[in-house]
Simulated scan of single mutants.
Amino acid sequence: MTHQHPLQGGCSCGRNRYTIQIPQDATESARVLFDSSAVARRSQAAPLSAWLRVPLTWYQSTTYAFFEDENHSAIYRSYTSPHEQDAKRNFCGFCGTPLSYWSESPASEAEYISLTLGSLNGSDLRDLEELGVFPTEALEDAESDKEKIEKAVPIAGSYTTSEGLPWFETMVDGSRLGKLKKSSGHRQSGRYKVEWEIVEWTDDAEDVNVSSSKRKLGEVEEGDFRMEGTQ
């Protein structure tokens, strides 16, 4: 496994940054792991968490204080669950971004650290497929559905972004999650901007008419949208 530049990542606010430097003569390799256990689900507040597991010697982290009263211990925070006394979950003390997971059970695992996949920079995330770090089963499932995905006609109004991850989208499109449709928009009136996002799921066996369930903008209650003040 080779890479021309270090993998980089960090938290949402930018106070935490980390670098993964893969040695040229590395005999070990990074691995992407997916975890749906109850402990991971609660800690990440997500039904499925994804990690990049690397040797600790490849990993370096730095904190940046934005104000004089900020220090390292306040920026880089750790939590040990009563149910996981031999593990630490690290996160940003300001924006709350989950960053890493470290455990010394079994003892050999203490030499590795797992970084949250979502905390990696977008460009480095897109390079992970070339590094060969994905579980074989996930790639085989995606490859088996590749022809069907490429022939599929894009759904009108579906949400797309230039920051997409082709390897992840391929795996999702080949699963039940691929039936999710997203659309979003916004409208500005004076000092306030209203943003909305609609997520729909349909079964192949059903023809679900979702248009009747959508509410007009004027019918949306105050708690249903986010308002941002503008200058």
Rank of each mutant, 00 (worst) to 15 (best):
G190M: 06
A30W: 01
T19A: 03
H83D: 13
L165C: 12
E200C: 07
F67T: 09
Y76L: 09
S144Q: 11
R126E: 03
E147Q: 14
L99V: 08
P47D: 01
K214G: 01
S213Q: 08
D25G: 02
Q85S: 15
E200Q: 12
S175W: 10
H5D: 10
T2K: 12
E140S: 04
N16M: 12
S175M: 11
E104W: 07
E197D: 07
E143N: 05
A74E: 12
N16I: 14
K179S: 15
I198G: 00
L180M: 11
S37G: 08
W167F: 12
C95W: 06
V153H: 07
T116P: 06
F134V: 05
W51R: 00
T57A: 15
R215E: 04
N121Q: 14
I113M: 00
G10N: 05
A138Y: 07
E197G: 06
V172A: 07
E104G: 10
P154C: 02
S158G: 08
L128A: 07
D127P: 02
S175I: 09
R31S: 03
L177C: 13
K214R: 03
N90K: 10
S119I: 06
Q4V: 05
A26I: 06
V194F: 15
H72Y: 03
N209F: 14
G14W: 07
P166R: 04
S119P: 08
E221V: 08
L56C: 15
L217N: 10
G218Q: 08
V208C: 14
M171W: 00
S81W: 00
L131S: 05
S36G: 11
E222C: 08
S78H: 11
A74V: 08
T230E: 12
A152M: 12
W51D: 01
T2R: 13
G223H: 13
V210Y: 12
S49R: 01
T170A: 15
